[in-house]
Amino acid sequence: NNDALSPAIRRLLAEHNLDASAIKGTGVGGRLTREDVEKWLAKA
């Protein structure tokens, strides 16, 4: 759900042209964290 994304995470996803639904969030309530996105980028 994009409503649950912080502005910083939205920007990070946009910079790398990523789809938030492709990344499993580990934050509160399954929210994406910066670490989630960075780990996903490291694997890609």
Score class of each variant (00 low, 15 high):
Asn1His: 14
Asn1Gly: 13
Asn1Val: 13
Asn1Gln: 13
Asn1Asp: 14
Asn1Trp: 10
Asn1Lys: 06
Asn1Ala: 14
Asn1Ile: 13
Asn2Pro: 13
Asn2Val: 13
Asn2Asp: 14
Asn2His: 14
Asn2Arg: 07
Asn2Cys: 11
Asn2Gln: 14
Asn2Thr: 12
Asp3Lys: 07
Asp3Gln: 11
Asp3Phe: 03
Asp3Trp: 02
Asp3Thr: 11
Asp3Ile: 10
Asp3Val: 10
Asp3Glu: 11
Asp3Gly: 10
Asp3Ser: 10
Asp3Ala: 11
Ala4Met: 13
Ala4Gln: 12
Ala4Ser: 11
Ala4His: 14
Ala4Asp: 15
Ala4Thr: 13
Ala4Pro: 12
Ala4Phe: 13
Ala4Arg: 12
Ala4Leu: 13
Leu5Ile: 12
Leu5Tyr: 06
Leu5Asp: 06
Leu5Lys: 01
Leu5Gln: 06
Leu5Ala: 04
Leu5Asn: 04
Ser6Asn: 07
Ser6Val: 04
Ser6Ala: 08
Ser6Gln: 06
Ser6Tyr: 04
Ser6Trp: 10
Ser6Leu: 07
Ser6Asp: 15
Ser6Lys: 04
Ser6His: 10
Ser6Arg: 04
Ser6Met: 05
Ser6Glu: 15
Pro7Gln: 12
Pro7Lys: 09
Pro7Ala: 15
Pro7His: 11
Pro7Trp: 03
Pro7Ile: 11
Pro7Gly: 08
Pro7Tyr: 06
Pro7Val: 11
Pro7Thr: 09
Pro7Leu: 12
Pro7Asn: 10
Pro7Ser: 08
Pro7Asp: 15
Ala8Asp: 15
Ala8Gly: 06
Ala8His: 10
Ala8Glu: 15
Ala8Ile: 08
Ala8Val: 08
Ala8Arg: 08
Ala8Lys: 05
Ile9Ala: 03
Ile9Arg: 01
Ile9Glu: 03
Ile9Leu: 11
Ile9Tyr: 04
Ile9Met: 06
Ile9Ser: 01
Ile9His: 03
Ile9Val: 12
Ile9Gln: 03
Ile9Gly: 00
Ile9Thr: 05
Arg10Val: 15
Arg10Glu: 15
Arg10Lys: 13
Arg10Gly: 06
Arg10Tyr: 08
Arg10His: 10
Arg10Gln: 15
Arg11Asp: 15
Arg11Ala: 15
Arg11Val: 14
Arg11Thr: 12
Arg11Ser: 11
Arg11Phe: 14
Arg11Lys: 15
Arg11Pro: 04
Leu12Ser: 02
Leu12Ala: 06
Leu12Met: 07
Leu12Arg: 02
Leu12Glu: 05
Leu12Asn: 01
Leu12Lys: 03
Leu12Pro: 02
Leu12Trp: 11
Leu13Gln: 00
Leu13Ala: 03
Leu13Pro: 00
Leu13Met: 05
Leu13Val: 03
Leu13Tyr: 01
Leu13Thr: 00
Leu13Arg: 00
Ala14Arg: 12
Ala14Ile: 07
Ala14Pro: 00
Ala14Tyr: 09
Ala14Thr: 07
Ala14Asp: 09
Ala14Lys: 11
Ala14Glu: 11
Ala14Gln: 12
Glu15Val: 10
Glu15Lys: 14
Glu15Ser: 08
Glu15Asp: 09
Glu15Asn: 08
Glu15Ile: 14
Glu15His: 12
His16Lys: 04
His16Trp: 09
His16Thr: 02
His16Arg: 04
His16Asn: 07
His16Asp: 00
His16Gln: 03
His16Ala: 06
His16Phe: 09
Asn17Val: 04
Asn17Met: 08
Asn17Ser: 08
Asn17Pro: 02
Asn17Arg: 08
Asn17Gln: 09
Asn17Lys: 10
Asn17Glu: 06
Leu18Trp: 06
Leu18Lys: 03
Leu18Met: 06
Leu18Cys: 05
Leu18Gly: 05
Leu18Ser: 04
Leu18Pro: 01
Asp19Thr: 09
Asp19Ser: 09
Asp19Gly: 05
Asp19Val: 08
Asp19Tyr: 04
Asp19His: 09
Asp19Phe: 05
Ala20Asn: 03
Ala20Glu: 07
Ala20Leu: 08
Ala20Gly: 08
Ala20His: 07
Ala20Pro: 14
Ala20Met: 06
Ala20Lys: 04
Ala20Phe: 06
Ala20Val: 10
Ala20Tyr: 06
Ser21Gly: 11
Ser21Arg: 10
Ser21Ile: 06
Ser21Gln: 10
Ser21Ala: 12
Ser21Met: 09
Ser21Asn: 13
Ser21Lys: 11
Ser21Glu: 09
Ser21Tyr: 06
Ser21Thr: 12
Ser21Leu: 09
Ser21Asp: 11
Ala22Tyr: 09
Ala22Gln: 14
Ala22Cys: 07
Ala22Met: 15
Ala22Phe: 09
Ala22Ser: 10
Ala22Leu: 15
Ala22Asn: 09
Ala22Val: 12
Ala22His: 10
Ile23Pro: 01
Ile23Ser: 01
Ile23Asn: 00
Ile23Met: 08
Ile23Ala: 03
Ile23Tyr: 02
Ile23Cys: 04
Ile23Val: 06
Ile23Arg: 01
Ile23Asp: 00
Ile23Thr: 01
Ile23Phe: 05
Lys24Gly: 07
Lys24Val: 14
Lys24Phe: 08
Lys24Gln: 13
Lys24Ala: 11
Lys24Glu: 12
Lys24Trp: 06
Lys24Asn: 09
Gly25Ser: 03
Gly25Leu: 03
Gly25His: 05
Gly25Phe: 02
Gly25Asp: 02
Thr26His: 04
Thr26Trp: 03
Thr26Lys: 03
Thr26Leu: 05
Thr26Arg: 02
Thr26Val: 05
Thr26Tyr: 02
Gly27Arg: 00
Gly27Thr: 03
Gly27Pro: 01
Gly27Phe: 03
Gly27Trp: 02
Gly27Val: 02
Gly27Lys: 01
Gly27Ser: 03
Gly27Leu: 04
Gly27Tyr: 02
Val28Asp: 11
Val28Trp: 08
Val28Glu: 14
Val28Lys: 12
Val28Tyr: 09
Gly29Phe: 05
Gly29Val: 02
Gly29Leu: 06
Gly29Lys: 04
Gly30Tyr: 01
Gly30Met: 03
Gly30Asn: 05
Gly30Pro: 01
Gly30Ala: 04
Gly30Arg: 03
Gly30Ser: 04
Gly30Leu: 02
Gly30Phe: 02
Arg31Tyr: 07
Arg31His: 09
Arg31Phe: 07
Arg31Asp: 06
Arg31Ile: 12
Arg31Thr: 14
Arg31Glu: 12
Arg31Ala: 15
Arg31Val: 13
Arg31Asn: 09
Arg31Leu: 11
Arg31Met: 12
Leu32Gly: 00
Leu32Phe: 04
Leu32Trp: 05
Leu32Ser: 00
Leu32Pro: 06
Leu32Arg: 02
Leu32Asn: 00
Leu32Lys: 01
Leu32Ile: 14
Leu32Thr: 04
Leu32His: 02
Thr33Ser: 04
Thr33Ile: 04
Thr33Phe: 00
Thr33Trp: 00
Thr33His: 01
Thr33Lys: 03
Thr33Asp: 01
Thr33Arg: 05
Thr33Pro: 00
Thr33Cys: 01
Thr33Val: 05
Thr33Tyr: 00
Thr33Met: 05
Arg34Ile: 15
Arg34His: 11
Arg34Lys: 14
Arg34Phe: 15
Arg34Thr: 12
Arg34Gln: 14
Arg34Leu: 15
Arg34Val: 15
Arg34Ala: 12
Arg34Gly: 05
Arg34Pro: 08
Arg34Trp: 14
Glu35Ile: 08
Glu35Leu: 10
Glu35Gly: 07
Glu35Phe: 08
Glu35His: 09
Glu35Tyr: 07
Glu35Lys: 08
Glu35Ser: 10
Glu35Arg: 11
Glu35Val: 07
Asp36Ile: 01
Asp36Asn: 01
Asp36Ser: 00
Asp36Leu: 02
Asp36Phe: 01
Asp36Gln: 02
Asp36Met: 02
Val37Asp: 00
Val37Pro: 00
Val37Ser: 00
Val37Leu: 07
Val37Ala: 05
Val37Tyr: 02
Val37Asn: 00
Val37Met: 03
Glu38Asp: 09
Glu38Asn: 07
Glu38Trp: 13
Glu38His: 08
Glu38Tyr: 13
Glu38Gln: 09
Glu38Arg: 08
Glu38Pro: 00
Glu38Thr: 07
Glu38Gly: 05
Lys39Val: 10
Lys39Met: 14
Lys39Ser: 11
Lys39Asn: 15
Lys39Glu: 14
Trp40Lys: 04
Trp40Gln: 07
Trp40Met: 10
Trp40Glu: 10
Trp40Tyr: 15
Trp40Cys: 02
Trp40Asn: 03
Trp40Asp: 01
Leu41Trp: 06
Leu41Asn: 01
Leu41Pro: 00
Leu41Arg: 01
Leu41Ile: 14
Leu41Ala: 04
Leu41Val: 10
Leu41Tyr: 07
Leu41Gly: 01
Ala42Val: 08
Ala42Asp: 10
Ala42Ile: 12
Ala42Arg: 10
Ala42His: 09
Ala42Gln: 12
Ala42Met: 10
Ala42Gly: 07
Lys43Phe: 13
Lys43Gly: 13
Lys43Leu: 14
Lys43Tyr: 13
Lys43Met: 14
Lys43Gln: 15
Lys43Pro: 05
Lys43Trp: 12
Lys43Arg: 12
Lys43Glu: 15
Lys43His: 13
Ala44Asp: 10
Ala44His: 15
Ala44Asn: 13
Ala44Phe: 15
Ala44Tyr: 15
Ala44Met: 14
Ala44Ser: 12
Ala44Gln: 13
Ala44Leu: 15
Ala44Thr: 12
Ala44Val: 13
Ala44Ile: 13
